[in-house]
Every structure is written in structure tokens, then in C-alpha cells.
């Protein structure tokens, strides 16, 4: 790895994925410098979640490779990736339904024995992350009783407790109010300033617009365009990918 410039946190090379004879990802390549917030947009079926699953070890790519800080991680398991500092959230949050919000976050601190904090330290950390996502007053509520948006925040706090270096957030802001999106964006920007690298998908662009440094637009398994969010939001290729060509030409400004 070159000493100059920012370190490359994540590098995705020529990822291919087929479901039967359907090509879901065709030669997707990009790199993500450490400390950047990269957004990934695309209409339903563009391959965003599949790409996320491949990077985070939940699905196997048919070809291509993934590197994390220079180390190839293409065939690693989710548990090993989590332990190496690559964490993710899911569209449907993977939480422990019968444990309290606080206990859920606490489980994130169950690290490998050599780096696992003491129980009391882990409890302090859980309080810290829970207050960061604004749920400290709901700490004793069983996770299953929380609305979906708050379950996503519990999951976010939990994966933050795993002390990740790269965090993948899959449509975390879906269903959030505008105010909640702004608060989340401010929180994520603060984490980025502390050195965390983030890869976010967003279906509706509202979170990425607030916080992403750069955005990749994915359509039918290919990166069609990339650039700063403000430039992409009105980009004709992005608009037509979301709305179809005819509609996109007519409603250019509405995407």
C-alpha cells in the first residue's frame, strides 16, 4: 500500500454475480478511501443489496475480489469480517427481539477475548452508543416493542459497539422523518470525522444528499455514473434509471 494519500479502506474488483441466468452484478469495481462516506444508489433490483451482501460475507461472488485495507476478504465469513472491523446493518434489522435495546447494544461489545472490554466498560460503551443514536431513555424497552426505525438505530448502535473501521448501512434511513434524517446525518458525519469509513445505500437519496462525499449510481448491476451527490441527483442517467427514460426526460427536476 502506498504511503502517500489516504489509505484505501475498501476495494471492490470486478465483482460478478448471477442468479440463474440473470446477471445481478457485472464487473462492479470501485475503491473507497479511508475516512470517506460513499453512497450507493439505484432503483429496486439494481444490485445494491447483493453488492452489500458480497462485501459483508453473506453471499459469495461468482467472480471478482474484495480487499479490506489491502487484505483480501472475498471468502471471509460475516463473523470474521465483523471481528476484523467490517460491520453492517440490514434493511430488516438483525436484532435480538427479546433483549432490551441496551442489551442489544451491549452484545456489540462481545468482541474476541483479547480485545473484549470488561463487563462494566462494555456497559458504559453501550450507554454511550445508545445515547448517540438518541435512544438512551428507551434502554430497557424490549427491542421487539420498538418501531422499525428505532430498531434500525438500535442495530446501528450495536454495530458501532463492535468498533468497526468500515460500516455498511443498508437503507438505514428508510421511513425516517426529515428531522431524523438530519440528526442521523450529523451523527454519521461526526463518526466520519473520528476516522470511520462508511458505505451507505439509500433508496430515496435524502440521507446521501446530507452526508455523502461521493455517490455511485448502480443500475442493472453496473455502475452507471459517480460523483458528488449534488451532481448526481439531477444526472439524466440516474433520473432515467429511476423513472424510465421517457418519464425522466419530462420530470428532470423531480427525481
Amino acid at each position: 500500500m502506498a504511503a502517500q494519500g489516504p489509505q484505501v479502506c475498501l476495494e471492490v474488483r470486478q465483482i460478478k454475480k448471477y442468479f440463474g441466468d440473470q446477471t445481478v452484478l457485472r464487473d462492479v469495481s470501485f475503491s473507497l478511501p479511508a475516512g470517506e462516506i460513499l453512497g450507493l444508489i439505484g432503483p429496486n433490483g439494481a444490485g445494491k443489496s447483493t453488492l452489500f451482501n458480497i462485501i459483508s460475507g453473506w453471499q459469495k461472488a461468482d467472480a471478482g475480489s474484495v480487499f479490506f485495507f489491502g487484505q483480501e476478504i472475498t471468502s471471509w465469513t460475516p463473523k470474521d469480517l465483523s471481528r476484523a472491523g467490517l460491520a453492517r446493518t440490514f434493511q430488516v434489522p438483525q436484532i435480538f427481539p427479546e433483549m432490551s435495546a441496551w442489551e442489544n447494544v451491549l452484545m456489540g461489545a462481545w468482541l474476541p477475548p483479547q480485545s473484549r472490554p470488561s463487563f462494566s466498560k462494555a456497559q458504559e460503551e453501550a450507554d454511550h452508543w445508545l445515547s448517540l443514536v438518541g435512544l438512551l431513555e428507551l434502554r430497557h424497552t424490549p427491542a421487539r416493542d420498538l418501531p422499525l426505525a428505532q430498531q434500525r438505530l438500535v442495530e446501528l448502535a450495536q454495530v458501532l459497539a463492535t468498533r468497526p473501521r468500515l460500516l455498511l448501512l443498508d437503507e438505514i434511513a428508510a421511513g425516517f422523518s426529515l428531522g431524523a434524517v438530519k440528526r442521523l446525518a450529523a451523527g454519521l458525519a461526526k463518526l466520519r470525522d473520528q476516522g470511520l469509513t462508511l458505505l451507505l445505500t439509500d433508496h430515496l437519496f435524502n440521507l446521501l444528499e446530507e452526508v455523502a462525499d461521493r455517490v455511485l449510481a448502480l443500475d442493472r448491476g453496473e455502475i452507471i455514473v459517480q460523483g458528488p451527490p449534488a451532481a448526481l441527483i439531477h444526472h439524466p442517467d440516474v433520473v432515467s434509471a429511476y423513472l424510465g427514460t421517457r418519464c425522466g426526460a419530462a420530470d428532470n427536476g423531480e427525481a
Binding site: K79, S82, R83, R88, I95, F96, E98, M99
Partner: peptide, 14 residues
């Protein structure tokens, strides 16, 4: 308990 409730989520949590 986390493992009892959801093995996948437990692995996500490491």
C-alpha cells in the same frame, strides 16, 4: 441469550 434468539444477528454482532 443473543445466540438463542437469533444466530445470524449474533454473528453480525461478532
Amino acid at each position: 441469550r443473543a445466540t438463542i434468539q437469533d444466530r445470524e444477528a449474533a454473528q453480525v454482532a461478532g
